[in-house]
């Protein structure tokens, strides 16, 4: 952006279809890790969200009398479906994925005018609406390593039949919030499954981190927003975590639990709903990191990435207003 000279420009060929394919490829390690630790639910979620997302996108495009092929080919709805499905819990049944996809594609994207006009990240909007509407279903996570085989998961996905209580549990972030008078160390000592779970989340987050770094090296997005978000989250966690280590989780827990890495590299780098300029992206990322810490620590919901992203999406136009890069020769 800064190295742009006067016209004529060479076209880099980075059109949206290629970007979307790269994002899809970069999410594969995280998807594989999530399937390895938490079962085939995520795979079913991904397939169903993408299929339904494409169908919804096509029908809305028909209703809006837009060219079908052109807009379906850009792949944005596939990315939305994939990110939404990765964020949903692995035990999500078909109707939960459907409601989330419906709100993401129809309400958050097309009611605002389609790709490029949506003020909110569609995947996070669909996720947040389901979290508000179905809080119990949205927190149904399997404990790591113990999950249904594929036929049982298939049955659960469509009919919700199966012994779920045996394999589901609270997420580590939720457990660290509801300590019930214990310190974090005591809670972890009493619940070895939470420790296993946290280990699994570490690996999944590292997989997303690897995919995200790959995207950054390929210049799909700049480093500003992810680095700003991760460092502000770490600083918040460090400030509170070193003061009261018994009550507040430290930086490593905040960075490697929950949806932190997925959010940092795949959600907040969405070019449509984030701030535009480089300094704007720094502000945007810092805001999300701080909000994630605040909502995770003192809020009512187990994870905070979706709400933090939506709140900062709301601020993005204002951030753009104050961080507009100065044109060369402009006085102020």
């Amino acid at each position: 952006m800064m190295a742009l000279f006067s016209s004529p420009h060479l076209h880099g060929g980075n059109h949206s279809q290629r970007l979307m394919l790269l994002v899809l490829a970069a999410a594969v390690p995280g998807l594989v890790a999530q399937i390895y630790w938490f079962g085939f639910g995520t795979l079913l979620n991904v397939i169903w969200a993408i299929t339904l997302g494409l169908a919804l996108e096509a029908s809305v495009l028909l209703m809006r009398k837009r060219p079908l092929g052109f807009f379906l080919k850009d792949g944005s709805v596939i990315v939305t479906g994939l990110l939404l499905a990765l964020a949903l819990p692995p035990m999500a049944p078909w109707w939960l994925v459907s409601v989330a996809t419906l709100f993401a594609v129809v309400f958050a994207k097309h009611l605002y005018g389609g790709l490029g006009n949506n003020p909110f990240n569609p995947a996070m909007a669909g996720y947040a609406i389901c979290l508000i509407a179905f809080p119990t279903s949205m927190t149904l996570w399997t404990s790591s390593g113990e999950y249904f085989n594929l036929p049982d998961q298939w049955l659960w996905f469509w009919t919700e039949q199966g012994n779920v209580d045996a394999i589901t549990q609270a997420t580590p972030l939720d457990a660290m919030k509801h300590l019930q008078g214990n310190t974090i160390k005591e809670m972890l000592a009493a619940n070895p499954t939470i420790v296993n779970y946290a280990d699994a989340m570490f690996w999944i987050n590292l997989a997303y981190l690897a995919g995200g770094l790959g995207l950054m090296l390929l210049k799909v997005f700049t480093w500003h927003a992810p680095v700003a978000m991760l460092s502000s989250l770490s600083i918040m966690a460090f400030l509170f975590g070193t003061g009261e280590p018994d009550l507040y989780a430290g930086p490593s827990e905040h960075l490697l639990l929950g949806a932190t890495m997925l959010g940092a590299f795949f959600i907040i780098t969405d070019p449509v709903s984030s701030a535009t300029s480089r300094s704007g992206k720094l502000v945007f990322g810092v805001g999300i990191g701080v909000l994630i810490y605040i909502i995770r620590t003192w809020g009512a919901y187990p994870d905070a990435v979706a709400f933090a992203v939506l709140l900062m999406n709301l601020c993005a136009p204002l951030i753009d207003q104050y961080t507009k890069p100065k044109a060369y020769g402009q006085q102020h």
């Binding site: 609406i129 508000i132 509407a133 179905f134």
Partner: peptide, 8 residues
Amino acid sequence: FLFAILPP
């Protein structure tokens, strides 16, 4: 569908 009952 709790969402419909709540203000949003």
